[in-house]
Computed example of a mutant assay.
Amino acid sequence: MCGFFITGGEQHVRATKEGQEQLRIFEEQGLGDKKFFEGDEIGMADLAFGSLAWWLPVMSEIAGVKVIEAESFPRLHAWIQRFKEFPTIKETLPDRSALLTYFKDRRATFLALAKS
């Protein structure tokens, strides 16, 4: 799902589409019409996939793509918003600016390695 982040050019476009196909399955078969993956309350599946809510938008921003847009993934987008606003989760989220710095460095490393 993160191929868009570690590639450039034509591979970048293909990896973005492949990641979105995976997210579509995640949204339709995993989340469905539920508020959280296991129903109305956060459960183990939400916690297992919870990092998606915080790091994927940061990685997408750095890579210059919009992987999860509200129009394309309305249920998944809404889940991300609910998950991030859940009090216990909100209190423990890492600093966004630190993540931006970290992932900018990681992407630069990946792209440099791909060129060599």
Score class of each variant (00 low, 15 high):
Lys17Phe: 13
Glu18Val: 15
Gln20Tyr: 13
Glu21Asp: 14
Glu21Ala: 12
Gln22Arg: 15
Arg24Ile: 08
Glu28Leu: 15
Glu28Met: 14
Gln29Leu: 14
Gly30Thr: 15
Gly30Met: 14
Leu31Asn: 06
Leu31Tyr: 07
Gly32Pro: 10
Gly32Thr: 08
Asp33Ala: 12
Lys34Ile: 02
Lys34Pro: 02
Lys34Thr: 05
Lys35Glu: 09
Lys35Leu: 04
Glu38Tyr: 01
Gly39His: 01
Asp40Gln: 10
Ile42Lys: 01
Ile42Asp: 00
Met44Lys: 08
Leu47Gly: 08
Ala48Lys: 07
Ala48Gly: 11
Phe49Pro: 06
Gly50Ala: 08
Ser51Leu: 11
Leu52Ser: 09
Leu56Gly: 11
Leu56Arg: 09
Leu56Ala: 13
Pro57Gly: 07
Ser60Gln: 10
Ile62Ser: 01
Ala63Val: 07
Ala63Cys: 07
Ala63Tyr: 05
Gly64Glu: 02
Lys66Pro: 02
Glu71Ser: 14
Ser72Lys: 13
Leu76Met: 11
His77Pro: 03
Ile80Val: 10
Ile80Pro: 02
Ile80Lys: 05
Ile80Trp: 00
Phe83His: 01
Phe83Asp: 00
Phe83Glu: 01
Phe83Arg: 00
Glu85Ile: 04
Glu85Thr: 13
Phe86Glu: 13
Phe86Cys: 10
Phe86Pro: 03
Pro87Val: 07
Ile89Glu: 04
Ile89Asn: 05
Ile89Gln: 03
Lys90Tyr: 04
Thr92Val: 07
Pro94Lys: 00
Asp95Pro: 05
Arg96Ser: 08
Arg96Gln: 11
Arg96Trp: 02
Ser97Met: 04
Ser97Ile: 06
Ala98Arg: 08
Ala98His: 02
Leu99Met: 06
Leu99Thr: 00
Leu99Arg: 01
Leu100Ala: 01
Leu100Asn: 04
Thr101Asn: 09
Tyr102His: 10
Tyr102Pro: 02
Lys104Ser: 12
Asp105Pro: 00
Asp105Glu: 07
Arg106Thr: 02
